[in-house]
């Protein structure tokens, strides 16, 4: 009987949506699931994990776990795998997940499949579909040996259901020392109330067509009004018009929201690779030949500086 251990991720002490997606997926497949919850002041989230269907929740709550640390997290996940007897470990393909997935797999002496967008499970046989070659192709993969299956799943690939917290059955993990050769000193965070790119159901993104920082700032309020995360193309971030944390694409954040609005983005391959998993793509561009229109469900050929105010009016109308 397969048993899944979900590696939960939190931000500011709260569970992130992709984690809930994983638990919802396990539930929809009738798989037994447990979870491991690591961080600082995160214990309170165990009940929500339980509400989402997690059996035991393995908790490591410690001030020293506030910032991600490969060595400590790997030890903790391995510990939880051992205690739970899980046959599968599921992670999200966040930066944390990308770092942790291969290390956990190698620690357990097995392989891994990363950034999976489609998972089929039949007992212990797993077939995973994942994009490759800058999303020009997808590959279908499977595990060839017995043993633990370590898989990271792309955020947004599956839906998270609604669920309410339940009293969790928690197990405390002992806090490891960590690797003395590595000292995680600090995290430089820009304080903001903005919605994170890989969590948002709507993303509003800007490209070179904005012409500069002012143009980007012109579009940004619309993101707030729509409850959307604010993204940008690589050209915009490299030019310093917007900070790199906004970058959508293979080098920045790979997103697959329900709605992706591209303002003045022409659609370079690396950008398309980072957003073509979006369910609905809306493109606004002056250049009718821009490649972004080839993937857009709704393409508006026009000037973004004229279009944005109309968007704002219309959004206000919908809200009322």
């Amino acid at each position: 009987m397969p048993k899944v251990l979900v590696v939960a991720e939190t931000k500011n002490g709260e569970l992130k949506k992709p984690t809930l997606e994983l638990l919802s997926l396990a539930k929809s497949m009738n798989l037994q699931a447990e979870s491991v919850l690591i961080g600082k002041e995160v214990s309170s989230q165990a009940d929500l994990l339980a509400g989402y269907g997690s059996g035991k929740v393995y908790v490591a709550d410690d001030a020293g776990l506030e910032i991600y640390n490969t060595s400590k997290y790997t030890t903790l996940v391995a510990d939880a795998v051992g205690q739970s007897g899980a046959t599968q470990v599921w992670l999200t393909s966040s930066e944390t997940g990308r770092d942790l997935t291969p290390r956990v797999a190698a620690r357990m002496g097995v392989g891994a499949l990363s950034d999976v967008t489609e998972l089929e499970i039949d007992g212990d046989n797993i077939t995973a579909t994942r994009p490759c070659m800058a999303t020009k192709l997808v590959q279908q993969c499977r595990f060839t040996k017995d043993g633990l299956r370590v898989i990271s799943i792309r955020a947004g690939a599956y839906e998270a259901e609604e669920a309410s917290p339940q009293t969790a059955d928690t197990v405390s993990l002992s806090i490891p020392e960590g690797d003395a050769r590595v000292e995680v000193r600090d995290i430089q965070v820009e304080e903001s109330n903005e919605i994170e790119l890989n969590e948002a159901s709507i993303v509003v993104s800007v490209g070179r067509g904005t012409g500069g920082t002012e143009g980007c700032d012109f579009v940004k309020p619309l993101a707030g009004e729509m409850g959307a995360a604010f993204g940008a193309s690589r050209a915009v971030c490299d030019a310093g018009w917007m900070p790199h944390k906004h970058q959508v694409g293979q080098t920045g954040t790979v997103v697959s929201p329900d709605f992706y609005f591209a303002f003045g983005i022409s659609g370079a391959i690396q950008h398309l690779a980072g957003m073509s998993g979006s369910k609905v793509i809306v493109a606004i561009n002056k250049d009718a030949e821009a490649p972004i229109f080839k993937v857009a469900d709704y393409g508006i050929v026009g000037d973004l500086f004229k279009a944005v105010p109309v968007f704002q009016e219309e959004v206000a109308k919908i809200k009322n």
């Binding site: 991720e9 931000k11 910032i67 991600y68 966040s94 930066e95 944390t96 003395a180 050769r181 590595v182 000292e183 995680v184 000193r185 600090d186 995290i187 430089q188 965070v189 820009e190 994170e196 944390k245």
Partner: peptide, 11 residues
């Protein structure tokens, strides 16, 4: 990282 730039000293 996911939440910002992690500053890491490494031997």
């Amino acid at each position: 990282g996911d939440h910002g730039t992690e500053v890491i000293g490494i031997k």
